[in-house]
Nucleic acid binder design. Structure first.
Lengths: 380, 380
DNA sequence: ATGAAAGCGCTAACAA
DNA sequence: TTGTTAGCGCTTTCAT
């Protein structure tokens, strides 16, 4: 189904028109428009004047037809859940991506998917050669999209570590150091003297959730008196309501719990609410740590939330950079696997400086892992 | 600056290839691909088979070059502030837009702007004839963008009532009934027996804020003992921090205030925090009403927020529809100016049914105004 | 109903 | 350095 024709803007001047007006050939105008190499100053000047006078703007369709480039990148957001839309995650990624693409004169084509039908639509679009590459988010373990996208033959970078096994050599991706961040969070709780530390997980079909759980287990296993107590782990789904449910269940089976590491801030907020309603004090009775540093929520909860910050906008920027420039985009950025940026900051300093990839992005294989920072507030 | 060439996907089959394979002319293939009118069944069938076997996908650049259509719409978000990114407003609009565009086989090209430089970039892009139309958001009174966009000669629909005077006949727009919603909110407070009702405004260079203020004034002026008391109006900026500041100032000059209508939920949340910190009970001492029904914030504040809901996703859908189909998109939807949907719902029923434009969209002139609903929770 | 042919506006050899 | 020319892949008259 095609939509009815939208009234067309008045016909714009063409290369030809500019050429005539400047008294040169189309080729010369083309050269000037594309950087002006190999054109003598005075001529170039004349052409530029003609361009300005006529208000000439190149027709991108014509250009793409011959260059086979589009200077456009698709952003694919698979979003079976509303969750994506209730947290700023999405918007921040986009902002980062947009900045980077803009800096390279690329356009951002947004492809939102709601269900299976949309998947084939997206695959067709990518196969149609409208864009030079794709950035893909929010994948779940069983998602068919990666396969379809691969078949479309478009260069792709994934947001978040893909959870499926290689059909095609591991794809490029950018992710947060979920496991490391989780460790930092749990260690912080341990450092506070807590010993019955629970974890409310995210949706475990997403690698971010699985990795955070792993990080939790790492620390619990190595902790004195250690050994993993499965009764301290409650599976949830990244939502506030899920957090409430999980916290209730947790209090049911472990009334002695003295700390909770929640898979994200939204979940932590749900937990906080249940704790308050039960008359338990935070952090005195139960310390709570979240993940994301989602503002303003994390700052303004009661009490303000101690949480693991990830630099979401930077993730977006990096994904775009990787797609546009290839792995070399990371030069001067990657560091040896063990190294890391300071993991705790007490000041909620949000800026990581514009532009740069920032410190300590780790690159194991085709993936780039961004570091996290523990933000201490009142809840733990 | 153009980015380095991204590796090109392997060359896709062309119309020509399909034609050869099916043993017909390019024209015939073209006809089949575009609906197949005037092609006999058996031939059409042969062509379709060839298309499938070759995995043919039409080259959109070539097509656009001749049709001068792009089946693409630009979404322009002028965003000098971070605010846009901390509330789901943006994402919900996009979702609505995306759904509608998808239903019409149109692509969504996202143009995010951070500052003046970006404005000219956007204008150039629109003038470049890449898209069939534009949807534009987040304008402030002094924004140069509308002028530039108009000059670009692209059909445009604005999100939110434009605040500037006509250079060009009033533009099409879709807006929430900000004034009516504000009235409903304030009347609700009056109905609760409150008489010293304050208003914390939004950023008054945006029409949404100005209109909500007007709605507040409407009711205050008509209320017994009425007369507008300027000391009850505090200017703010739609942010939580701004809400806190405003609430403090308000309590300074009017310690007797017994109700607050905040220009949005974020602001209301800030106010709530200050009230709590001063030991004032909500709603017993001071009733609070917000605007937006931003979830999950509004539901999960303490106490849960009574607020004026606007259907943001529907706004987006309508904008897209208006752009694609023109004003006739509203047939069967517009109602006489005075009419309105039920203004109060007690159940937080979010669904307005998929697809339809829903009830009671008002269309004064070139604008479409969507109704609001008061959602009663604990705060008022 | 089908095919032949003329471009859409641009870039990129190749000539001059 | 500048101009000439041949397409890029598709749609669309115009013949047949």
């Amino acid at each position: 189904m095609r939509s009815p024709v939208v009234p067309e803007a008045v016909s714009r001047p063409t290369l030809e028109a500019v050429a005539t007006r400047a008294g040169v050939s189309r080729a010369t105008v083309s050269r000037v428009v594309n950087g002006g190499y190999g054109v003598r100053q005075p001529l170039a000047e004349r052409v530029r004047r003609a361009v300005a006078e006529l208000g000439y703007v190149p027709n991108q369709a014509a250009r793409s037809l011959v260059t086979k480039r589009h200077d456009a990148v698709a952003v694919v957001i698979a979003e079976p859940e509303v969750r994506v839309f209730t947290d700023p995650f999405f918007a921040l990624q986009l902002r980062g991506i947009s900045k980077e693409l803009t800096a390279h004169d690329n356009q951002l084509v947004l492809l939102l998917t709601e269900g299976r039908d949309d998947h084939t639509r997206v695959a067709r679009y990518l196969a149609g050669g409208h864009v030079d590459g794709a950035l893909v988010f929010s994948l779940h373990l069983d998602d068919p999209l990666p396969g379809l996208i691969h078949d479309a033959g478009v260069p792709t970078v994934f947001g978040g570590r893909p959870g499926w096994r290689d059909r095609t050599g591991t794809p490029m991706y950018v992710d947060t150091d979920n496991r490391g961040g989780a460790r930092t969070a749990v260690r912080h709780l341990v450092g506070l003297g807590r010993s019955r530390i629970a974890h409310i997980t995210g949706a475990l079909d997403q690698t971010s959730a699985a990795d955070r759980l792993d990080g939790y287990r790492d620390v619990m296993a190595e902790t004195a008196g250690g050994g993993l107590d499965p009764s301290l782990v409650v599976e949830s789904d990244f939502t506030p309501a899920g957090g409430e449910r999980a916290m209730r269940e947790l209090l049911g089976r472990r009334p002695d719990v003295d700390a909770v590491f929640a898979a994200n801030d939204l979940t932590a907020l749900g937990a906080l609410r249940v704790l308050r309603e039960r008359g338990l004090r935070v952090p005195e009775d139960v310390a709570v740590v979240g993940f994301d540093d989602m503002l303003p929520l994390a700052e303004q909860s009661d009490p303000p939330l101690t949480t693991v910050r990830q630099d979401i906008e930077r993730m977006g920027r990096l994904m775009a950079r990787l797609l546009l420039r290839g792995p070399s985009a990371l030069h001067g950025t990657s560091v040896p696997h063990g190294a890391s940026a300071p993991e705790v900051s007490s000041a909620p300093d949000r800026s990581s400086g514009p532009g740069g990839t920032g410190p300590a992005a780790r690159t194991p294989g085709p993936g780039v892992i961004l570091p996290t920072t523990l933000i201490r507030r009142a809840s733990a």
